[in-house]
Design a protein around this nucleic acid. Structure first.
Lengths: 234, 234
DNA sequence: CGAAACATTGACAACTTTCAATTGCCGTGG
DNA sequence: CCACGGCAATTGAAAGTTGTCAATGTTTCG
């Protein structure tokens, strides 16, 4: 039952820069979203090197974050030593916003990463006055809840289904068409899907053999037959 | 991979009664909770016989519900025919409140059940004026999110750990001390934990052999050694 | 270039599901 | 009241899936 768990300890310090990032810089979805606007108006940008911790599990959840560039993962170490990855956040995604004073997960940079940080109290204060913002916060929460519920549904499926789902999800979110450049290592994927690295690796190989995907390099995957992947998921 | 799935089809009609239920009637937690007060002020009570559907997956989520008596489960049929149970709701618990217009899960009465129903729009209207209520709604959402996240952590554990967790959770929520009167059948438990009935049954038998629990009848379980169960969870 | 980290593959073990049979429980009707 | 039927629960045996351990191959980066 004990999978190996990859626990990275990095003490790299983040670089804090005070200049403002124009909202348009992020994924183009900035306009018309009051939440994104608010974050960029009031926030400061910070840079984290690969594998650096952005915040720790149990720390006070005083800030909300939005990815500007790079990729972030949230994770939690289970009592048996394994690690569960809560999710991956790509440019434009918001993370770290909690409904209680402690972070449930920790957050780490998967690659060199830039994020915008804003104090939660500030966000809440504005939300008290701006209905659109508070509505947007509700919507964000709803999406987050749905995302976690989908993970529950995912975790009762077979290894093949989980991996197929992961590939389709990444392909859609990263918008690289059929080519996926994975920013994370196999261990991250395994801990996200509740599998071992070996099972993830074997499943990918098997999907490659059945011509559903192509493994150019271990980090670059091409979807050759999306519907085959979707059927697995079905 | 295909477990058997228990799909119950019942066409029993609910009984709608218009009289108000005094808030104190519910679990004693009514006072000081503006959300519970609001529900009972504005809501109507409905009765559902065992296994009746309260709302269906995909239906419009116009109402929020609170259990008065009995037990409710939410569930979803997966494309492969299996069923995933989202959660069990005991007297006092609120369910069916969504952030979008469709229900993600369906809800059924596990036993004969009485619930209070309130229109979501009414709740939201009041929340717009009453800060305490809107704060309570946020808190409820936060708890729900945490609950689902815990289920994610649960589903990556062994069958024994899942069953132990389930027993401890039920014992705590039903407040029967060490005696648990299970309102649901084994299939419900299995679909909640992402296991098969056989595995649940075997695990319970094994826990009974190791003297951690006692199976008086299949519906009545006595916790004999809570710390043994907790260690499994650890 | 070479070491270290990452990824893949194989063989085997452990856990869970599947299929099948049996037992126990409970309500209904004779 | 008891017997019967039906459903729920348990148990057994076998198969399938995933995890574990170990070896080998590959990539990355100083």
């Amino acid at each position: 039952m004990l999978h190996q768990a990859a626990v990275h300890i990095t003490s790299s310090r983040p670089v804090i820069s005070t200049h403002r990032v124009p909202p348009e810089a992020v994924n183009g979805l900035a306009k018309q979203n009051p939440l994104v606007e608010a974050i960029h108006m009031m926030g400061a940008t910070m840079s984290f090197p690969s594998e650096a911790e952005i915040f720790g599990e149990g720390e006070e959840a005083d800030y909300a974050y939005q990815v500007v560039s790079g990729v972030v993962r949230t994770s939690k170490i289970l009592s048996d030593g394994r690690r569960q990855v809560g999710g991956f956040y790509l440019p434009g995604d918001i993370f770290g916003l909690e409904f209680r004073d402690e972070h449930t997960f920790s957050a780490e940079a998967v690659t060199d990463t830039k994020v915008v940080v804003v104090k939660r109290s500030m966000l809440m204060a504005v939300a008290g006055r701006d209905t659109r913002l508070s509505r947007e916060l509700m919507a964000l929460t709803g999406r987050e809840l749905r995302r976690v519920q989908n993970r529950v549904l995912l975790l009762v499926k077979s290894a093949e289904q989980r991996v197929a789902y992961f590939l389709l999800e990444m392909a859609e979110r990263a918008r690289g068409g059929n080519v996926i450049e994975l920013p994370m290592v196999r261990q991250d994927i395994a801990d996200y899907l509740g599998l071992t690295v070996e099972t993830v690796s074997r499943t990918l190989s098997s999907l490659a053999h059945s011509a559903a995907i192509e493994l150019s390099t271990s980090r670059r995957i091409v979807l050759r037959n999306r519907s085959a992947l979707r059927i697995l998921n079905a």
